[in-house]
Design a protein around this nucleic acid. Structure first.
Lengths: 217, 217
DNA sequence: TAATGTGAAGCCTTTCACAGCA
DNA sequence: TGCTGTGAAAGGCTTCACATTA
């Protein structure tokens, strides 16, 4: 295995495996075969072995993968071994929900700052974070925050995006559907709730037998 | 064009085009070429033509596509011409945020019911919806609700899923990362915020020049 | 024996390139 | 001329099948 180009799709599946391994290790599995993990997470077993082989041989023929070790390896590949500091911009309903979202911890994320442009919100506390004015975004670099979460309304998305990039942010999770120009050296992952919902009716009652597509995304 | 098998990926892109067309038609474009739309939404222009060709020839050589007509056609393909009634289960932070999410309307969705199992929440109003007890889920069929949105905590996801399926729901948008068994004749689209976030560090500072991957998903 | 790691095959998706039409 | 619609080529991803290893 000589570091060929690694499919983006393989990277997208690693967190799925990680979450599966977490459950299975809680269930007491010390070792796990690609077959068993495959059944559990709903991915083909060859796929799992292939995906893992891009990064190295973590298994033992005849035995499978050591659950703890594989978890550690995947966390390392995804750079989740360290804790990542994230900043959230836009403390509306969705922003609040994300701030209070309980499950970031298991992947090593920590939202350490929240920003809004509404004077009424600035200074308020959510959990143990105090909402700051967006003008403070400039200082993100000094605070070693490399990940941004955008939960502002559509109109403000481009401006927020530009500010985050200017502040040296390296990765952005955006809930805003609006198209961003000028992304460069910044990885952007967009979650567009309305758009995902918009695909649903197409699949309803169209097909005599539902195709059970790969996985909802 | 003889209805070959239509790639799921093409369907996934249709809402992107739809949203792009909305903006461009607001900007006053009466006709639009695949090239212009491509630049706007960040997809290859051949891709757009190919995607549309799966469903029919909507354009005019030399001119492009009539903006209004293409919007209408895509809405028709995605079955978004009618209004879809949706029910939301789990009125926590995220559920509230989704209930108040302003942008479902443009795709023709209408959340008409919300459910929770917490007696303190039942009876409360959010917008013009009254929160009901989850036991009322049974009646979804009579109420002609075919789409469900799951925003319950992980532990309750499987149970909620089973109830929605039993109630005759045809499509589900789930924010719960937990694996669902027994999906059948039901299309499930999953949004897993933590998992999307978990991919971000992998892409940060790994690559000398960022690959500008297709689009964040 | 049981399961990994992997070349090769097969399948799906994207891009190219151009005939044909307005 | 400008742009669509579409075969064909290229590229990428998934699955198969098996040599290999503990």
């Amino acid at each position: 295995m000589k570091r060929k180009k690694i499919p983006d799709e393989a990277v997208r599946r690693l967190p799925i495996y990680l979450r599966g391994l977490l459950s299975l290790s809680e269930q007491g599995y010390e070792n796990i075969s690609s077959k068993k993990l495959a059944d559990f997470v709903g991915v083909n077993h060859s796929q799992i072995r292939k995906d893992l082989s891009y990064f190295g041989g973590f298994g033992t023929p005849g035995i499978g993968y050591n659950t703890e070790n594989l978890r550690r390896q995947i966390r390392k590949i995804l750079k989740l071994s360290m804790v990542h500091k994230a900043a959230l911009v836009g403390v509306g309903n969705l922003g609040l929900a994300v701030l209070r979202y309980p499950r970031f911890g298991i992947f090593g994320f920590h939202i350490v700052a929240a920003f809004d442009n509404n004077p009424k919100k600035i200074g308020r506390r959510v959990g143990n974070i105090t909402i700051e004015d967006v003008s403070n975004l400039k200082a993100l670099q000094q605070r070693k925050i490399k990940i941004g979460i955008i939960t502002v309304p559509c109109e403000a998305a481009q401006e927020t995006f530009d500010k985050l990039v200017a502040a040296g942010i390296k990765g952005i999770l955006s809930f805003s559907p609006c198209y961003k120009k000028g992304r460069k050296k910044v990885k952007v992952i967009t979650i567009d709730i309305a758009m995902d919902l918009a695909r649903l009716p197409y699949y309803i009652a169209t097909r005599p037998t539902t195709r059970l597509a790969k996985r909802g995304r």
